[in-house]
Amino acid sequence: MASGRERRAVTVPGARIWRTLALFAAAAFVSVLAAPLVGSTPIDLGRVFSLAEPFASNIDAQIFFVARLPRALAAALVGAALAASGVVLQALLRNPLATPFTLGVSSGAALGAMVVITFDLSIPWVPAVPLASFVGSLGAVTIVYLLATLRHHGLSTEVLLLAGVTLNAFFSAVILFIQYFADFADAFRAMRWLMGDLDVAGYGPIVAALPLVVVAFVLFAWMPRALNLLALGPDAAATRGIDVALVQRLAFLSASVATGAAVAVAGPIGFVGIIVPHLVRLLVGADHRVVLPASALFGAAFLVVCDVMARTLLAPVEIPVGVITAVLGGPFFLWLLVRTR
């Protein structure tokens, strides 16, 4: 009897889920705290948090809080948003190869950013490129959403996928067209934006993106069980008490908003949204109640570490972080593709 109870304690999901998440949270926390310590000027964690010295004269604290922490936090926010959106969209589309950029969000954002960069548009008080990129992603999302709901009662995931892929190709063509007529300096800036870059100036971009990501994450928090049931198929989910059409709409819109905010902060950093969910699934199984929050935390840690590598590998030259994630992610993705066939 006692052994039976022991075995049962292990199989009850709740406790196991919290233990797993605590580990992932610790990894994310440590990475954000440790990342600012790494750089051309070595600093000491003890002195950073030392209260003996006023902030004005504490160089270590200034480098930590003013120069490097915003960047680590931005990496964490973007990584978490992209990884969690990847999980949600893979579940929504019932396709493990979906990414946050599959449904057109990133190419819409890129088009917005390209237009502003190439035509040197500016808006008073607001950084124009992130704003244009967010507006572009919203535009792409709206088009895809309207197409997918127009002739269907619910949300047609097939139309969603096809519309997203087509829109990606279409926007890419428009971007190339604009690039073709851009002068060299603008084309170079645009190119850099497309590579992804976490070199944020201060906490402003984080504060601007945070509310959007928080709203999306609140909706995500309500979703994992529905996402598990969607894996069985929409009809099977409906017979287990899920409002499938509602969940599909909320999943698509919240994942799109989180992705749009992340891209506005850092550009379209690829592969985070696909490798992180799959790594996490390999580690913890398929239950979205673990996979979703664990992916957000692991995505944060992953991008923070990638950004440290981007800053230090060829220092003082900085590698675009999108290159790091792609160099790590590309081969991994291919391995995954071969493995799942």
């Binding site: 199989t11 893979q90 579940a91 019932r94 396709n95 493990p96 598990n228 969607l230 894996a231 069985l232 198929g233 099977a236 699934r281 199984g285 398929a286 239950d287």
Partner: peptide, 12 residues
């Protein structure tokens, strides 16, 4: 039933 992800029998 085709699963999109690899759940265990107990999870199902």
């Amino acid at each position: 039933t085709h699963l999109a992800f690899d759940y265990t029998v107990l999870e199902i």
